[in-house]
Nucleic acid binder design. Sequence first.
DNA 1: TAGATTGTTAATCGATTAACAATC
DNA 2: TAGATTGTTAATCGATTAACAATC
Lengths: 215, 215
Amino acid sequence: MEKISKQTLQRLPMYLTFLKQRLTNSLDTVSATVIAQALGLNHVQVRKDLAAVSTGGKPKTGYITHDLISQIENFLGYNDCEKAVIVGAGRLGKALISYEGFRNYGLDIIAAFDKEVDIINKEISGKPIFSMELLKKTCIDHGVKIGIITVPVNNAQAVCDLLTNSGIKAVWNFAPVHLQVPEGVLVQNENMAASLAVLSKHLKQKNKQNKSRHT
Amino acid sequence: MEKISKQTLQRLPMYLTFLKQRLTNSLDTVSATVIAQALGLNHVQVRKDLAAVSTGGKPKTGYITHDLISQIENFLGYNDCEKAVIVGAGRLGKALISYEGFRNYGLDIIAAFDKEVDIINKEISGKPIFSMELLKKTCIDHGVKIGIITVPVNNAQAVCDLLTNSGIKAVWNFAPVHLQVPEGVLVQNENMAASLAVLSKHLKQKNKQNKSRHT
DNA sequence: TAGATTGTTAATCGATTAACAATC
DNA sequence: TAGATTGTTAATCGATTAACAATC
């Protein structure tokens, strides 16, 4: 097992969904070639990725689907959940809190925080919304290491500072800003604006092509 | 203006938010160095990115903040919105429909579609939810080119096929599966599972470091 | 003028892909 | 055995970074 790149890390969940699908269809073994084809990747890349997490497959047979699944899940820590808090109980925040599926990905959101008085001390899908004042104590008491930011852009940095001051070591940021964090804290941006940029540029180019074809 | 990489494309929205902040603080000019420092990037990279979309800055002064903003916005097509439909009006779907901010990013969600009878023909934040049967007609009638998928994994490919059959040329996919699409159609994955993988791995490594330090 | 800054050309780095040997 | 497949070592490719010239 060698050092793993961020790219590899991000492909592992894709392998996982594919492998699970495959197991549902009672296909007990799987080759790197099959995975590569299904996911539109290069087969050597798949093999390298798998080498980083698994004990290996057998020539001619491939990998044992079931084993590979548990090896990847194990590697990603999907078995033992990390606790997380979410700051900002707006529409997006609520959607994330309510999504039960995160537990399968090793994430356990224990509470939400918001400054909106109307919703404080209420619940969403059985999870409490607390006032911002309780953030630090909650994180420390429960050993929470993951903070999710779903507040508007202008509050994001302040919330981030608060989180890192509360012992958070990994921030999942949904606000389209670059956050400054102390060393040792990881920020993972879920940058929807960036995704949209890619989408709309693709369409712009397609349009241009069509136009030039007609003239 | 040379060919632009996907990476550059994804950084442009970051520049934009920073530049707008800067304008709010009445800072009329900006240098690549300042941008780079603020966003944790290399200054040459920033300059290259900007070269792809702007008419250039002036030595010693830098770029005119306001001009740069409109050049980036123009390049990304934030001025003229693309119409989009969203399939799957669950929690996440609802959150995305309701988020007014997308219009600033050039995205105009005109309707949602779902197979759940209870919510069909109702509205969310003033936008209609239709039955799946109306999807194709709606897309064609309105010339919709962007489809957003927020359905569970097992329905995602079927929904995707339906979308591409309805003239969709760009798919924004929130389901954690790899989608097969005809040539010329772009899939942009908002892969939360992948993000979570990065976050949890970071924590696992930190834990390991701490443990080995204590023994 | 001196120096801050832009913009370009070359070097580096890392990830992907190709080629090949090993094995069941 | 032959061939499908794994796994590794080398080549390629693209993006990032470094070095430098140009300019206000």
